[in-house]
Design a binder for these strands. Structure first.
Lengths: 346, 346
DNA sequence: TCCCGAAGTTCGATTTAAATG
DNA sequence: GCATTTAAATCGAACTTCGGG
């Protein structure tokens, strides 16, 4: 492998000079153009590539970001990843991916591993409620801490930044859409009360109902128990709704997966979507556009979530390089209603 | 940060000894148990963590694998990733993720970046035909080459290992399933002829037809053009099939996405799946089980594909550490028919 | 000679402090 | 003192070689 010494020898100067020139360090101003171009040419000819291990050892930087996702196979994760990956690429960073698979022991392990690898920042995806991220972080020694962004959930600790979608606004969009289509008897498959997102979305719904005078029939409201199996739960709960016998023409599901379960349950009961019942989802995960019928849903701008996270990290890293303290940033992005074929006028 | 010197000072011996003890190097046999435990205890107390940059510089190893996917938002990728990630975790490696987004310039860039970061191996996902992986690799200097596995496609170069599913067998499974259900008038949405997978799947279909005496009506065979937009193409081609007026009771789609498009087109034309027409997919991507109706499909064991790739890399890395030359490995794994609700007897 | 331990070198790039004409 | 250039120290771990008892 070609080292800086080889380049130095070949261009008849010292490694120091080569380093200064190739990195365009401040001292490069004092070096005549002629020497510079000679060195650059030699480096080019020899195919010199600096050894990043040596550079990292010296600079104590890895140009690497740790990305911890709770379930890589969840389409919600992948679109955010796309945004992260793209933005990192632009600033010369690379993501190290850790899929914790909903396991808190894996979370702990990965956290240690990534910190030991000296990632310069961390991005954590909103995770199952049973992993207490805040607590896990408290045991990390102050010295090792790096800028961290939480996507999709807010943190108690003021060391975390966060990027979330405006869930309340999103909930409102869903119900408002059905209301505008003339639906008045609307059923709800709520998210688990334990999730902040669920409570916020519900708040948006309740607020709109109050404002518009829409009456929400308690018999038409059911709640997901398990956060993980939302398709099956969506299916089961919708069956329950149907059995209760209170008719409805619209259904607001907690997320896309739940909506799929609901649509399937309606279909199985002989009801057509949207002819007999309109259904809305939440997220706009990649399958929503291809569903049968294509799903009307509230889109989370996932790529944007990823991009924003990287931006926050980049600034924090920059700040810490200049010995500055960066305070945490909390960003709330607007959702967007995507109307497809699963909703129709009454 | 605590260094090996700190541990040495605190335990009243030299850095050498500390290094030997903590790494359990061969020389550790000559060191009395008492010294060992003293050192270990001090290391523990001080919270010593070896600096991986220094270690990497010395050993020239990164314990890192580059994973190049052509489109992270494709569910096909994510399930394989899960398998990769899991296996790497077990052998103490970490994946660096590169999403090339179907762009060949990004591919080239990432290849360089990853090699410069000294990944110890590479996993490439089968990619759009317009990226000639073989060619890109030929320009990589011999010195920099690392063990490489191609998933989902075979390579001309004998430096690549590969892991693929048995496509011919899979094609056979799909048609055989419909045949067994009594279908005789079957339509086909083939994959692009340019893909090896497409040709292999078709071969499986053709062979079965010949063996069983099934007649394939050329008017009921259409072919995808664009590899990327298979939902839209599946939709459009199925409409074409319907317009031709040759009736059919079953449809074999190239992959799940195509099947979704086909189902949607049938539905739009007023046909129910599976009542009026059975449809099969290929891949068993994560949405297939939740589709409306849940899709009968030929599963690629994606996690296994990932796991096997890592296994191949691990062996190749091990071999090269012992100065051995490892030859390329080609593995073909069996697909599996997953019967759900999109197919039914005639 | 055997056991135990340490001094010194190496990995490759960067940076400080200093030397040349 | 100025414009150029460089020797030497540094980053932290690991390995080679050597010495004392």
């Amino acid at each position: 492998m070609i080292t800086i010494r080889d380049v130095a020898r070949e261009s008849r100067c010292s490694p120091t000079t080569v380093s200064i020139v190739l990195n365009n360090a401040p001292l490069a101003n004092y070096i005549p153009q002629e020497t510079k171009s000679r060195i650059k040419q030699v480096a080019e000819e020899l195919g010199y590539q600096p050894n990043l291990f040596a550079r990292s050892l010296r600079s104590n930087r890895s140009h690497t970001i740790g990305v911890i996702v709770y379930d890589i196979s969840d389409p919600y994760s992948t679109q955010i990843l796309r945004g992260i990956e793209n933005s990192l690429y632009e600033i010369g960073y690379l993501p190290i991916l850790a899929d914790i698979q909903n396991s808190d022991s894996r979370f702990r392990n990965y956290l240690n591993i990534l910190l030991q690898r000296r990632v310069e920042g961390l991005i954590l995806f909103s995770n199952p409620f049973y992993i207490d991220v805040d607590k896990e972080f408290e045991r990390v020694p102050e010295k090792r801490k790096v800028p961290t962004v939480l996507i999709g959930r807010e943190s108690r600790l003021d060391t975390f930044s966060s990027v979330v979608v405006n869930n309340e606004e999103g909930g409102r969009m869903a119900i408002q859409h059905l209301y505008a289509l003339g639906h008045r008897k609307i059923a709800f498959v709520k998210g688990p009360e334990i999730f902040l997102d669920s409570r916020q979305r519900w708040k948006g719904i309740a607020t709109f109902a109050k404002e518009s005078g829409l009456v929400i029939d308690p018999e038409l409201v059911v709640e997901l128990k398990q956060p993980s199996a939302s398709y099956e739960e969506g299916y089961r709960l919708t069956q329950q709704l149907l059995e209760r016998g209170h008719s409805f023409t619209g259904l607001v599901a907690f997320d896309d997966m739940t909506a799929y379960g609901a649509i399937r349950a309606l279909k199985t009961a002989g009801l057509e979507v949207p002819r007999d019942c309109s259904v809305t989802g939440f997220d706009d995960t990649s399958g929503a556009a291809f569903y049968n019928p294509p799903l009307t849903t509230v889109r989370q701008p996932m790529e944007t979530l990823g991009t924003l996270s990287v931006g926050i990290l980049a600034e924090a890293i920059q700040a810490s390089l200049q010995q500055k303290v960066s305070s945490r940033v909390q960003r709330v992005v607007a959702p967007e209603l995507v109307v497809r074929d699963s909703t129709a006028p009454v």
